[in-house]
Nucleic acid binder design. Structure first.
Length: 977
DNA sequence: ACTCTGCTTAGAGGA
């Protein structure tokens, strides 16, 4: 008997939801293995008792289940003991991780490929082809029109969609397929015979239906959901026909009727069992028009669920602990049958992982060795190390994000429970018409059914622009659609959804807030691309991994076109010295330039000017940043100088003033031919998007002279790399003395995941230009940051900046009010507030450590969200509307005339300090937001325990900056504000 | 020991 080596987890983590009954979720307490048998000790109670047992055999004992896993059981339980064997029962491992049907069917041939496919993106030309034909077919089905005329019209439209720009040569091929669609001669594809039964498709009930099945841990999108009439012969006469709803899978390639294709259909029947209970599904090959019925047996389902369990195990345990340190787990073995691998889209990643991570010292077969050499031979050890290091970091981070992913609440929590936590609105019915706004955007309106109408909708924390998931109340239609909230009133909600739900009229819905599943596929796809054997990737590896020194040319005249000289000189006029230096450095660079923008030094203006100059010289520029708002900030400035540009990205996220520059808007003006589209993509020298937006088809063709990345010190390396593939040279703008990329996982952070590319490359000081002349803060406020971070390098741009003070138009009347209050109440000392208000004291520290002043009494910037909520609640009076209360992090890149900074923490006893205030960069951001006056409130005694804040307080002391010990709770009785 | 932004994310086909 083998005892499981793992310690049973004594406590169930908070984020795990367990339940009994048909939607059961059991916690595995212990696993006991004997040959041919596995016995699980399980419980559906968080207290881990009562415990039940589950016997696994006939192959199920191979399920890689471990203590601490959550499982779902199907079948029978006899007095607390479950049996899963050949004939009965299913075990679904980690059921709340929904695995897609295609992942599972691809794991039949190669489990390794399925796991890699889940981590990295990949695709081929043939696939794109299939996507196009699918689209044409599905549109025709939606329009219920399969006439040749309509088909060719739709095919034409599909060809002009930007998604397919890279592969237009398949045009003729596709038309031939469309013309041969079985349905083109009239009506929908119709009949199918199997063992005497005749199934006739009577209606296409849905297209691209989205299914989440938490019961089997599956998800998928079903090509066509069809209504069929089934006629079964029985003893020579026909019975009354039976109506069923079944999944129909379209295939545009060769009619293989392969086990993968059939498995896909079986998985669709399984995941829709709660919706339609289909006994079978159809496989339709468009090339021949043949339709194959797929009627799954218990064995089919059993074996596919076993594969799913193995796959989910590999995906979930992508990292493992080895002596306190995490490392990447081994993947399933590489196939020895090279034939199968020939067309595998994961070829490169497969070889990379083997060489960089698995590093099997065991004697591998020659064919495999050869294959690995072929795919990775161009890479050096540092390259492989960089790859495996960042792969580990990303996996660690994704594991942490996954535990915080609250999506499973949609199916595990009742509406009542979810509404209590505020992220859900239930008991909703569709009201009014559904309005199609654009491609895949449908405006819906729901109202609260009268049963629950006494409880208003505005109680929920759902608000406009939030991402949401729509499901039904019973849990049969989980994840029907996703979209964004538009308006929330007491009784109604409007939102835009990716699907038209009008056929579900009458269903009672729930809307759940959806933080979205954060994938790392962009990170990892970029990493994988960096390892490619191509010119662009070779060069980036030299710069980013080998840290090859960046080169510069010596003479401007070779880059500056003659005719642009005057314009450039003109643009340069408005700049200060370091800004001019930055322009020059960028123009001279052959590889890259790093622009350090210290606080208030006009980063946005500098970038805007840089773009104007490059534009004047005729250079093309790819302008990016991590956030949409940062991209638009620059564009708003650029727009004023009448520099043309193309803004890529979803309209919903783009600034309204920039909307006319988006692709969608330009297309509305008329893009009819392929060359129109080409022109649209090539017309502007300047193209702007977020770093994540690089999946856009424009990048299949276009390359740029320069790529500018703003906020670069806040972007993680794998994401920052993305846009760099498409430019000859790049400029990173940021300040690593301000906040770094956000990393949730502690180990990942300690292993350097919060090091941006900006910081990594900074060691080449010859590539760095510092913008140290600032126009934001007056002299006193600036001095704080100078002493904290910049060693006095930060300078005021003008005497006016240096001496600017806060203007308080009603100061006199407030002062006299305070005086008269003091006279009437001599027991209150208000002198501190009088001095604090004086504009001539630009920096004040209000020390409340003696006084017991509640930190919740004052503040505008605070490091903690919870604190901001409290402050906001106190500022509810209309007098305070317009006062912006926000976190330090959110204030980065922005400023205000007067900042009140609350440090919040005040604890007498030694104890946990928290991480946030230990970060020099966060403090630096906090104190450099104010232009004229900075009021800081906190307990000096507590704060001296944070090294950075201590340094700041010492500086205040040395400079005799004003500091008060206050007893505000006594001094400020409720005055009428 | 509490800071938060990106994402059409499943499936397109070939042996």
């Amino acid at each position: 008997m083998i005892k499981s080596p793992f310690c049973p987890h004594s406590k169930v983590p908070d984020h795990v939801i367990l339940c009994g009954g048909p939607k059961n979720r059991y916690w595995v307490i212990d696993v006991e293995e004997r040959p041919g048998l596995k016995t699980l000790t399980i419980s559906c109670s968080k207290l881990l008792h009562p415990a039940e047992t589950c016997l696994l055999r006939d192959g199920w004992e191979m399920t890689p289940v471990r203590p601490g896993d959550v499982v779902h059981l199907e079948g029978r339980s006899d007095g607390g003991s479950w049996l899963v064997d050949r004939e009965q029962g299913f075990l679904v491992l980690l059921p709340d991780s929904l695995i897609s049907g295609t992942s599972i069917s691809s794991s039949i041939r190669c489990m390794r490929r399925a796991v890699l496919g889940d981590i990295f993106d990949g695709g081929s030309k043939q696939m794109l082809n299939g996507t196009m034909v699918h689209e044409v077919f599905q549109r025709a089905a939606t329009a219920k029109d399969f006439s040749l005329e309509t088909l060719s019209k739709l095919a034409d439209e599909a060809l002009h969609s930007p998604r397919y720009l890279g592969d237009i040569q398949h045009f003729f091929f596709m038309l031939i397929i469309c013309a041969s669609l079985p349905s083109s001669s009239g009506g929908a594809p119709s009949r199918c015979q199997d063992s005497g039964a005749v199934a006739t498709v009577t209606e296409l009930a849905d297209i691209e239906e989205n299914v989440w099945s938490p019961r089997f841990g599956l998800k998928g999108k079903i090509d066509v959901t069809a209504r069929v009439r089934i006629q079964r012969p029985r003893n020579g006469f026909h019975r009354i026909p039976e109506e069923k709803t079944i999944p129909l899978e379209l295939k545009t390639g060769r009619e293989s009727n392969s086990i993968e294709h059939r498995s896909q259909v079986i998985l669709y029947t399984l995941m829709t069992s709660e919706r339609y209970n289909p006994e079978a599904g159809f496989l339709l090959y468009l090339k021949t028009g043949n339709m194959h019925p797929v009627a799954p047996s218990h064995m089919d389902r059993r074996e596919l669920l076993k594969l799913r369990n193995t796959l989910v195990h590999h995906i979930h345990s992508c990292v493992e602990k080895e002596a306190e340190r995490s490392c990447l787990s081994r993947l399933p073995d590489i196939l020895t049958n090279r034939q199968t691998c020939q067309y595998c889209p994961q070829k490169r990643n497969c070889a990379l992982y083997e060489r960089a991570v698995d590093r099997s010292s065991a004697v591998t077969e020659d064919v495999i060795h050869e294959f690995i050499q072929q795919e990775t031979g161009h890479l050096t050890l540092p390259h492989l190390n960089y790859f495996s290091h960042w792969l580990l970091l990303c996996c660690l981070e994704s594991v942490t994000m996954e535990t915080r992913n609250s999506r499973k609440r949609v199916w595990l929590q009742t509406v009542e429970e979810s509404e209590k936590s505020g992220s859900c609105a239930g008991n909703l019915q569709l009201s009014g018409p559904v309005i199609a706004q654009s491609e895949g955007v449908f405006l819906h309106r729901f109202h609260r059914s009268h049963v629950a109408s006494q409880q208003g909708l505005t109680n929920s924390s759902l608000s406009s622009r939030d991402r949401i998931v729509v499901s039904d109340l019973e849990g049969r239609l989980v994840g029907l659609a996703t979209g964004y909230l538009c308006e929330v009133s007491q009784t109604a909600i409007s939102c835009t959804l990716d699907r038209d739900l009008s056929k579900f009229r009458g269903v009672t819905f729930r809307l759940d807030g959806d933080e979205g599943v954060v994938g790392f596929s962009t990170h990892l796809t970029n990493l994988s691309k960096l390892m490619e054997n191509s010119q662009d990737s070779d060069r980036l590896r030299e710069l980013v991994i080998d840290l090859q020194a960046p080169e510069f040319i010596s003479n401007l005249s070779s880059v500056l076109p003659r005719e642009a000289k005057d314009t450039v000189a003109d643009i340069l006029k408005g700049l200060n010295k370091p800004q001019k230096q930055a322009m020059k450095k960028v123009l001279l660079s052959k590889d890259y330039t790093l622009v350090v923008g210290m606080p208030g030094t006009g980063k946005t203006t500098t970038i805007c000017t840089l773009v104007r100059i490059l534009h004047a010289c005729g250079f093309s520029v790819l302008l990016t940043s991590y956030t949409h708002s940062a991209v638009d900030n620059i564009l708003l400035k650029l727009k004023r100088f009448r520099v043309g540009f193309l803004r890529l990205g979803q309209g919903q996220k783009v600034h309204p003033d920039i909307l006319p520059y988006t692709e969608e808007s330009v297309r509305k003006k008329g893009v009819h031919t392929l060359s129109d589209l080409e022109q649209l993509y090539n017309k502007e020298l300047i193209v702007a998007t977020t770093c994540m937006g690089i999946k856009h088809p424009i990048f299949t063709r276009r390359r740029f002279d320069f790529c500018i990345v703003d906020e670069a010190s806040q972007i993680s390396q794998p994401i920052c790399l993305g846009p760099l593939f498409y430019a000859k040279r790049f400029v990173l703008v940021g300040d690593h003395q301000q906040l770094p990329p956000i990393v949730q996982n502690h180990e990942a952070r300690s292993l350097g995941m919060d090091e941006s590319l900006f910081k990594r490359l900074e060691l080449h000081s010859e590539a760095v230009v510092q913008l140290n002349v600032q126009y934001r803060m007056n002299r006193q406020i600036m001095s704080l940051s100078n002493s904290l971070m910049y060693d006095g390098r930060l300078e005021c741009g003008s005497e006016r900046t240096a001496t600017a003070l806060l203007t308080l138009p009603f100061l006199l009347s407030v002062q006299s009010e305070l005086s008269s209050y003091s006279e009437a109440h001599p027991q209150h000392d208000l002198s501190w507030i009088q001095s604090t208000l004086l504009p001539s004291n630009p920096v004040c520290f209000l020390d409340c450590s003696m006084a017991g002043c509640k930190p919740s009494d004052i503040g505008v910037i605070a490091p903690y969200r919870q604190q901001l909520k409290t402050i906001l609640a106190l500022l509810q009076s209309p007098a305070f509307t317009g006062v912006e209360v926000n976190t330090v992090d959110r204030y980065q890149g922005r400023d205000k005339s007067l900042i009140i900074l609350s440090f919040v923490r005040s604890t007498a006893e030694e104890g946990n300090l928290g991480e946030l205030l230990k970060d020099w960069r966060r403090l630096n951001v906090a104190i450099t937001r104010a232009k004229h006056k900075l009021l800081m409130v906190g307990s000096a005694t507590t704060l001296r325990r944070y090294t950075p804040v201590e340094k700041l307080l010492n500086h205040l002391q040395q400079e005799n900056m004003i500091s008060f010990k206050i007893a505000a709770h006594k001094a400020l009785p409720s005055m009428d504000l």
